[in-house]
């Protein structure tokens, strides 16, 4: 599984890194970024999905098959 944050849509609400801190992290202005290349470690999949479902700007996409 791989996650992607759309930089254009992200406004820095920070829900993703609060809910899934091993999958997302804040940049210096508080916008969300995928950790590393966005590959989700085994066991973190549900957290990643929950983070995506809570993004107020719907800026997160998940590739379930990556």
């Amino acid at each position: 599984m791989k996650v992607h944050v759309d930089e254009e849509r992200c406004e820095g609400h920070g829900r993703c890194y609060a809910l899934a801190p091993t999958v997302f992290e804040p940049d210096e202005v508080g916008d969300g970024m995928a950790v590393g290349d966005g590959t989700v470690a085994p066991g973190d999949e549900d957290r990643a999905r929950l983070a995506a479902a809570n993004c107020p700007e719907q800026a997160i996409t998940i590739d379930e098959d990556a």
Binding site: E11, G12, H13, L50, A53, N54, C55, P56, E57, Q58
Partner: peptide, 15 residues
């Protein structure tokens, strides 16, 4: 409530 895409802090560029 687990899924909660609320807009309490606004939406868009003025979040």
């Amino acid at each position: 409530r687990a899924v909660n895409r609320h807009a309490a802090f606004g939406l868009g560029i003025h979040r």
